[in-house]
Design a protein around this nucleic acid. Sequence first.
DNA 1: TGTACATCAGTGAACGCGCGTTCACTGATGTAC
DNA 2: TGTACATCAGTGAACGCGCGTTCACTGATGTAC
Lengths: 239, 239
Amino acid sequence: MPTPNAPRTARDRARAELTREIKEAARRQLAVAGADGLSLRAVSRELGMVSSALYRYFPSRDDLLTALIIDAYDAIGEQAETAIAQAGPGPGRVRWAAACAAVRAWARAHPHEYALIYGSPVPGYRAPEATIGPAARVPLAFVGVLADAFAAGEMATDGEGAESELGPELAAQAATLAAALALAPAVPPSALVATMIAWTQLYGMISFELFGQLVGSFEPADALFGHAVARLMAFVGFS
Amino acid sequence: MPTPNAPRTARDRARAELTREIKEAARRQLAVAGADGLSLRAVSRELGMVSSALYRYFPSRDDLLTALIIDAYDAIGEQAETAIAQAGPGPGRVRWAAACAAVRAWARAHPHEYALIYGSPVPGYRAPEATIGPAARVPLAFVGVLADAFAAGEMATDGEGAESELGPELAAQAATLAAALALAPAVPPSALVATMIAWTQLYGMISFELFGQLVGSFEPADALFGHAVARLMAFVGFS
DNA sequence: TGTACATCAGTGAACGCGCGTTCACTGATGTAC
DNA sequence: TGTACATCAGTGAACGCGCGTTCACTGATGTAC
């Protein structure tokens, strides 16, 4: 009894496999030439096909690029989610730290895919809506850890002054977001802001490391990363 | 009496001016096509010249790119330095905040040049050593503010526990850097690490804003930025 | 001040290259009866 | 189970394009005497 939605025929199986191989070859291309330099002809060459054959699988170069972007977002998101799950049901700070380490590990293992999704945008390429969901997985994973920690009563509450510190505009943005994510009222807006700051910090540190801005100062970056993650957890409010 | 080192002849003056115009046209090209897409032919077209004429000014495409990179680093560095100088001799936190705001303002005003220097590296392009000095100006500007604040006794010292918190590897890296920058012993290594973290944070936030990762959450980012800068100053130790 | 020569900026043609995409085609695989 | 037809994957040639770089050249600008 075959799995539902699984390819039925040999043709379907061959198609699924070739689609995967095309994306793999394209990912290898990314490393050599970057997103701008991704070339259908180079991909087809690597697969021993004629370039026009790729059009049976992807309607255009941009569609292939989109597929790679979605895959990359999904991969790094899944890595974060898995790390959180494997960190088990202990204190939230363990899951948080595991997620940070997982994101960095994925980035270091796939620097060109990381650059594809978090680097400077490719001029002339407009990311379609289908990328929005996958792109949100990593930040949502962090928010999930945060919400669980609040539910478990682990978080240091800043007292009544916390919200006013945000200022009216930021408080409003955070409240809107908290409502949209169904976090209110358990998770205070200030914690959401702190998470966003922690996430931009994580991103900044990984990008500096990968893009070579740390060369000559804090390289290798393991110690700096570990230290920053620890400090950031206190900043977000993990006890 | 002409300024020393100033162009003497009409030919020299024309050369300096055209060099400037070429770089300006190239910067406009960056916005359209990105660093990868920067094309000598497009630049020459915009200037009404034949493409081979550019070789009188830049020996190759990569050399033009290098010139743009150095200019961009110098421009954002100078912006930071100027902002610090204009913030006057008051408390260091005022100069620090001014520097953060200046860096963000420059990035928003020149997003494509920002992407050129801080975005994902262009595959196949190797930044020459001449970029190292200009690249260091912004972080050094922050370090300068930090050192002044320590000299003025403004910084909250963390007590004797501060260094051990760093861990041996990070403490060693920071100590080496502090010595190289002639900051020891006035500026403790932990403050240098905190500055580095603040700088990666600043970079992460600006990049997220510019590269569109904030769309749908904390956009416009002014409030988030102001809040983060304030929190980060406390983190670094400004009182 | 005037002349002879050297330097330099810009031209236009050409080189060899790689690219995305289209199109009519052949032959293999799958489907309906 | 066997046959007739439809679907689909992959081919190879071609389209029009833009690119970086080289090279011999012309004419203007600068310099030395």
